[in-house]
Amino acid sequence: MGKALSKSQIASTLAEKVGITKKQATLFLDELAQLAYKQAKNTFTLPGLGKLVLVNRKARKGRNPATGEVIQIPAKRVVKFRVSKAAKEAILGSK
């Protein structure tokens, strides 16, 4: 398995493919991330990849792995990324 691409590598690949400078590609990635952060509460969709969604988790009981003691885990809001069907098929292949 290969190494994950760094932000710089992604920016340079995008710049080369689209025909813009690396600095513009980096700015685009930064602005896209900021927009995703602001819009996550309304669900933010990246076409062809998936969407960011806020999910409310219920309170539940858990177990401390070190002691085995039962503990109460409080309810909380979490951010999840749901991968689109198109992305799954492109990566895994269709059944």
Rank of each mutant, 00 (worst) to 15 (best):
G48N: 03
L49I: 02
Q24M: 04
Q34Y: 10
G50F: 02
G62E: 01
V55H: 15
L29A: 01
I71V: 11
R60C: 05
K85M: 10
A87L: 15
S84K: 04
R57K: 11
F44N: 00
V78N: 13
V78I: 12
L92H: 15
A66T: 08
G62T: 03
F81Y: 08
K85G: 14
P74V: 00
F81R: 04
Q72A: 14
T67R: 09
K17D: 01
A66Q: 14
K22S: 01
T45M: 09
S12R: 11
K76T: 13
A36N: 01
N56Q: 12
V55D: 07
A15M: 03
L46R: 06
T67D: 04
G48S: 06
I71F: 14
S94W: 15
E31T: 03
A25M: 01
N56W: 04
A87F: 14
K61A: 11
G68K: 08
L14N: 06
L14T: 04
E89Q: 15
P74S: 06
L14C: 05
T26S: 10
K51C: 08
S94C: 14
Q24I: 02
I71L: 14
Q39E: 08
I20K: 02
L35M: 09
K38V: 00
L92F: 15
S94E: 15
V79D: 09
Q72G: 10
E69Q: 13
V18K: 03
F81E: 09
K23Y: 12
Y37F: 11
K61T: 14
K51N: 03
F44C: 00
K17N: 04
A75L: 05
L14H: 03
K51Q: 04
A33W: 09
V79R: 15
V55M: 07
D30F: 00
E89C: 10
P74L: 03
F81T: 05
T13L: 09
G19P: 06
L14R: 08
S84W: 05
K23T: 11
I20P: 11
A66S: 14
G48I: 00
G62S: 01
L54H: 07
K61P: 06
K22H: 13
V78P: 08
T43V: 07
V78M: 11
E69C: 05
Q24A: 02
T21P: 07
I73N: 08
I71E: 08
T45I: 06
P74M: 00
K41M: 03
R63I: 02
K51D: 05
G68D: 07
A40V: 03
I73K: 08
L46A: 02
V55C: 07
Y37A: 01
L35K: 11
A36R: 00
I20T: 12
Y37L: 05
T43P: 10
K80A: 13
T13V: 09
A25S: 02
N64F: 09
E89I: 12
V79L: 15
K58E: 08
A15L: 01
L49M: 06
E89S: 14
G50P: 07
V70D: 10
F81H: 11
F28P: 00
R63W: 04
F81Q: 09
V79K: 15
A86L: 12
F81S: 01
A25K: 04
L35T: 13
L27H: 09
